[in-house]
Nucleic acid binder design. Structure first.
Lengths: 302, 302
DNA sequence: GCAAAAGTGTTTCTTATACACCCATGG
DNA sequence: CCATGGGTGTATAAGAAACACTTTTGC
């Protein structure tokens, strides 16, 4: 019957094997896709002259049911059996922001056993970036309970212990998320243990006020990823509108990296990632500035 | 009864909610942890004078059952319900190499729908590195059907199409995996589509000879990760034994990056990542060279 | 002696960093 | 006129890249 076909030790061909396969031999975990979406938007102007300050914001959803009822969580949900993880993430994102075509990259997959009190849940997290102007247009007015929170993320303690074959570096970060009504916070500990050649970094939530599950850790990881990518890639432009001034671009870099940059040097650094247009800002209370757009071909020469 | 406790819209407290929770409302995917383990080892010497050539190797397992029976796959397996993804990966790795304490980092989670003909399988992949001397000692002699394959990975076609708002960059890579008995190969296409600010990269297997599932894609991704990390971190030392010569270290960089490096410049670049010892090689057929070890504190000054 | 590799020095070019200066606008 | 930001130049330091040369061993 099975002439000419490869059979396994039970004498089954691939078709026969697949037809008989029992996919439920083992207990399976649930899988979710969670999305961190960041944007940078303007605070109120202090005077007619000053430029508005930029702040980094993250979108969170208020939980309407147990567990962590009333607390805030990253948008996300269970991956359906017939959609890829990317599709699940994009679907959840669209449900919350009603935007289709956002930048999105896989961040990390969180696989600890006790992440969720309901059951074993593995969460694939995605990092997404949007510019605030596009978000304004497609305002998610249905806004079940989705809100943007201003992000503050600071290192406040660092400790290094030297061991025989390496060292242990412990850092404490304070994450604060804030909007008009709520103020959430968390303390995250990262431990980098170097022993010989092998180094391991672990993250732990020491305190989490108002942030559901282990999402404080995911947000922390997302900020770190954003910081490192902005330095050597063009991701920052996903946070910019079509047209922008170089100072606006610089402010975005500054708010993400949490440092001040020198104007002249910054402009040289990003020079070939942008193209100038013939348009200018107006009514700014000071000299108008030229508007630029992203130059997708900037790394051609490199 | 439920005084003082938060209840949801059905009047349930968290305890009651969790007790009643049905974790099997939706069909769940299976989750595996797969590991790419790389090592760099010596080829035969050509003459008593010449140094042995270094080659990059990856560990694969011959599949003993359907699907892809007889083909080669990355070591890995289903994540148990009571172990984290890291634990699952480490367990699988130990089963194959009998080494405990290897460098391991999460690589990427593959979530496409049709990755496995048996059922929906999501695979969290991990990248691991080992030095060949340690591997030699703890030889995995039980060797069910685990074998090391020499890796060759080359770009052989590149095509750029400029569009209105960006470009499409298509690249074809040839991956070849080889040992004494088998010669596997795959062609992988990566498409980077830049449109406005948003860029997307997709990977596709055009041809896969002898490599099971989508594992050719995972290996390709692992090589890319290894290449980029070796340039700006100290991961390379995970491929080195305790003591090594600077030329050996340079060979490891060269085989991974697939380029030749200038000796003097290379030595300046890695100078503060290594510490010299008082030991030397001998009987080399040429001038003996000083042995170095990894300096875990190299980034202190930065 | 000589092949092969070990090991170091010099020159040049490119980037990064810090700082100083002038320009244009709206109230 | 002046606060505020727009925009550019210059000088110095640090780093990357290319090349040249000397030293040491085993056979």
């Amino acid at each position: 019957m099975n002439e000419g076909k490869i059979t396994n030790k039970n004498g089954l061909t691939e078709e026969q094997f697949l037809a008989a396969y029992n996919a439920d031999k083992y207990e399976k975990p649930s899988v979710t896709a969670d999305i961190i979406i960041f944007t940078v938007s303007d605070e109120e102007k202090e005077s007619y002259r000053k430029l508005p300050q930029k702040v980094l914001k993250v979108l969170l959803i208020k939980r309407g049911d147990h567990p962590y009822m009333g607390q805030w969580a990253l948008p996300g949900g269970f991956a359906q059996i017939d959609e890829s993880l990317e599709e699940a993430a994009a679907r959840e994102l669209k449900e919350e922001t009603s935007i289709d075509d956002l930048y999105m990259e896989q961040l990390y997959t969180w696989g600890d056993v006790a992440r969720d009190p309901r059951m074993r849940v593995i969460s694939a997290s995605y990092l997404s970036l949007a510019d605030s102007k596009t978000l304004d247009i497609k305002a998610n007015d249905d806004a079940d309970d989705a809100k943007w929170f201003t992000v503050s993320y600071k290192l406040f303690q660092e400790q290094k212990t030297v061991t025989e074959k390496g060292y242990i570096l412990t850092r404490l970060f304070k994450l604060e998320l804030q909007n008009e009504d709520d103020r959430l916070s968390a303390i995250i500990k990262t431990v980098k243990a170097v022993e010989g050649k092998v180094s391991k970094t672990e993250r732990e939530i020491l305190e989490s006020k108002g942030i559901a599950f282990d999402h404080a850790k995911i947000i922390e990881y997302g900020i770190e990823r954003l910081r490192s990518k902005i330095e050597y890639t063009d991701t920052a432009f996903n946070l910019m509108p079509e047209l922008f001034t170089l100072t606006e671009l610089q402010q975005v870099y500054e708010v993400i990296l949490d440092t001040e940059l020198l104007k002249a040097n910054f402009r040289r650094k990003i020079a070939d990632m942008v193209t100038e247009t013939n348009e200018y800002t107006k009514d700014a209370g000071h000299r108008p500035s030229k508007l630029f757009k992203f130059n997708a071909n900037w790394n051609d020469t490199k």
